[in-house]
């Protein structure tokens, strides 16, 4: 099928973009990479009256280090740029490791990190990564902007805290503290497909090897990124032994994650099984990285 007609704008500054959003609000959609938006328009699941193409807004095309040692990613930064960026590899290794899991090379050449966040597909990796790292996004509107923490930003299936007149202008991924580790694990039917389920872990240990923080976030199994609070709490204050990690992953699968959905690719029970297995693997890998790191 072909997209329904729309009015096309190609502004060159953020001021123009937020001006157009103020004017059109609910009727407008931002077009960045278009790798999720255009398929839904081709199927006519989305029929926006106005498209605001931000590909010529060069002030949004950046990946840079933040003052706090973390990473700032503008709305036009593409997955392929982050995938091949030495800065991302150094400053945000979890973000770097996530890029090859996102779709295919042809998609990553167009798709943007901020677009993945704004689209908020429950099966996509980056929202879970942002929640695990306690990152945030900056929403711009006419006359100002505000920062929104990841946990408040994602509100459900394809639903975020972004208002109709707001542009997701940039995302900030905070740096990892010392003696911390990270991991991302997923199972997909084919390389590059949306994951049936996936897990992101970010953990920290003290000098004695005791866990001081653990954030375990799942994707593909809920209405958005699912932060496993009970699993995380169970790990803090103890040495992360193999048994404790396995217990925490089981706790995540049985208590933290709501009953996963069922579709042609996987039953609910299988997704729950994946939560436990992938949660365990992600935690093990993250703790291994945290204990290996001597600073």
């Amino acid at each position: 099928m072909k997209p329904a007609p729309f009015k096309y704008h190609a502004p060159t500054t953020v001021d123009e973009v937020v001006g157009l959003l103020a004017e059109h609000g609910y009727d407008a959609k931002i077009l960045a990479g278009g790798q999720s938006l255009i398929p839904t328009m081709n199927f006519r699941l989305a029929q926006p009256a106005v498209l605001i193409d931000i590909n010529a807004v060069s002030e949004l095309a950046y990946i840079k280090s933040n003052g706090d040692g973390g990473l700032r990613v503008g709305a036009l930064a593409r997955h392929a740029e982050a995938e091949h960026s030495r800065l991302v590899a150094e400053v945000a290794p979890l973000v770097h490791a996530t890029m090859p899991l996102i779709a295919h090379p042809q998609i990553r050449n167009r798709g943007t990190l901020c677009g993945s966040l704004a689209h908020a597909d429950p099966a996509s990796e980056l929202p879970a990564v942002l929640v695990a790292l306690q990152g945030r996004v900056r929403a711009s509107r006419q006359g100002g902007s505000r920062w929104i923490a990841a946990e408040e930003f994602f509100q459900g299936i394809f639903t975020t805290a972004l208002e109709p007149d707001e542009l997701l202008a940039e995302a900030a991924f905070p740096p990892l503290p010392s003696r911390s580790g990270w991991a991302i694990q997923e199972v997909a039917r084919r390389h590059g497909d949306f994951a049936l389920a996936g897990a992101v872990a970010v953990v920290q240990v003290d000098e004695g090897g005791t866990c001081t923080a653990a954030r375990l976030v799942f994707f593909g199994v809920g209405e958005g990124p699912v932060l496993a609070r009970q699993a995380g709490a169970a790990l803090v204050g103890a040495e992360p032994t193999e048994q404790r990690i396995a217990d925490a992953a089981a706790l995540a699968a049985n208590n933290d994650v709501p009953t996963p959905h069922e579709d042609i690719h996987a039953s609910s029970a299988y997704r729950r099984h994946l939560v436990e297995v992938l949660g365990r693997r992600a935690l093990s890998q993250a703790f291994a990285r945290a204990t290996a790191e001597e600073r």
Binding site: G34, Q35, I38, P39, N42, D53, Q106, I107, R110
Partner: peptide
């Protein structure tokens, strides 16, 4: 890139 996921005007 996928040419079906871009508009010609882009």
């Amino acid at each position: 890139v996928r040419s079906c996921l871009m508009f010609a005007v882009q």
